[in-house]
Design a protein around this nucleic acid. Sequence first.
DNA 1: CGGTCACTTGATCGTCTTCAATACCAGTGG
DNA 2: CCACTGGTATTGAAGACGATCAAGTGACCG
Lengths: 246, 246
Amino acid sequence: MSITTAARPRIHESRAALAQCEYCDARPASVCNALPDQDLGRLAAATVVMEIPAGTTFIAEGEPATAFFNITRGTAKLFKLLPDGRRQITGFARVGHFLGLAVSDTFAFSAEAIEPVCLCRFSRPRLRALLDEFPAMEKRLLEVAANELVAAQEQMLLLGRKTARERLASFLVMQSRQVAACEHARTRFALPMTRGDIADYLGLTIETVSRTLTHFRTEGLIDIPAASELLIRRPTALKSLADGLA
Amino acid sequence: MSITTAARPRIHESRAALAQCEYCDARPASVCNALPDQDLGRLAAATVVMEIPAGTTFIAEGEPATAFFNITRGTAKLFKLLPDGRRQITGFARVGHFLGLAVSDTFAFSAEAIEPVCLCRFSRPRLRALLDEFPAMEKRLLEVAANELVAAQEQMLLLGRKTARERLASFLVMQSRQVAACEHARTRFALPMTRGDIADYLGLTIETVSRTLTHFRTEGLIDIPAASELLIRRPTALKSLADGLA
DNA sequence: CGGTCACTTGATCGTCTTCAATACCAGTGG
DNA sequence: CCACTGGTATTGAAGACGATCAAGTGACCG
């Protein structure tokens, strides 16, 4: 529940160099992609690069939204809390994900790194200036927001109407897609999040997640080489389960 | 499950006149607000006004997204379906609500009028042209999207982690706010949707919704003058229940 | 009136949660 | 090398919340 796990989180900051934007791993998947090469200098000048250790909360719900972030490496979990500690993870943010789309002046969610994370930090006024200067970036941001909205609606369907089996199946199918970025879905991939994170994402308990995964394994749908590694054995069967067809 | 309830839905269409935009009830709450008076003619020229009877599905999930809509009167429910008929309502769209923010070329959800609805219809290319011509409108659309995203996250918390009582309390508090538009929350208001709609919005069953409402009534939290009318007797108590504090 | 539809209320059931114990794994220090 | 520790995952048994099944009520309408 603390803002950072380490007493003094070693968050390293540095001004972004041009090269960092031009060859940035995140660029293809990110809003930065909206800018042509020659304008990347303006972008780089507006950002501060940060390295964040795993377990660090770098956005806290309710705090003033003085800055926005763009993830360039690693994975973060986004979540909301109830006063008694109940938690709902609203999404996992990967490379290229833009954080802080809120219009409000306070963050509506918290964000915590589940792996070491690198991100670009934009101060609010600087981002505002960038968007005014480059309408293409604002257009791209609208696209991103629209896509997230569609994903959010899908997640509402999952949370409101799917069974535990269907939720897990949906989650695994989704992960297999997202891990592979733009490529086609992969059948073997890592799960950087814990069972607890998965549970809080799917509106279940740790035990149900664990049990359902072992059921899937005994049924031959998946394999679990290690706790944080997953192999899909029957992708189509898993997909139809996810879609509520089984 | 049918696209329209009536065999031949009497959907009335007409070209919007300038006056309809300038004095439109929806304008203050809508993206149209981004345009100054003198440009409203361009807006009106791009839209077709439609009147839709209650029960009509005017957006169907999976169909080509050839047009977008802006509600000027009435209320619609937005929902997604699973193959076996399970339904999740992702939101209720009121006056001023913009529908169809998807980037995809097919709709990700369905929309059905729960009251007689009036809406402005924008064809996809015309909207694109409008947004290119008036960047302020695109900015406004981004704001709208960001706000909806925040609401969606709140709803995920509700669906994933709140109890039936908390869900109903949250719903009633939300309704009391939304009915009153920009004013402060109202304690007495109409519920245009059925118990079934409420259930599908909150991830519950009709029976649980009904039971929980009567519990609230016997506890003195609310009153139910008619099935589709509601009076909040103890707003703060209901609010803390909604926030998980009880 | 008879019919439909939405809502309410009651009894039983089942899925997922809760509680509890155990297994596992990596890191640390004896 | 191995015992110890803390965090994470698995597995089992019991319990609860909401779902399902079923009956009954009331409003509206032809």
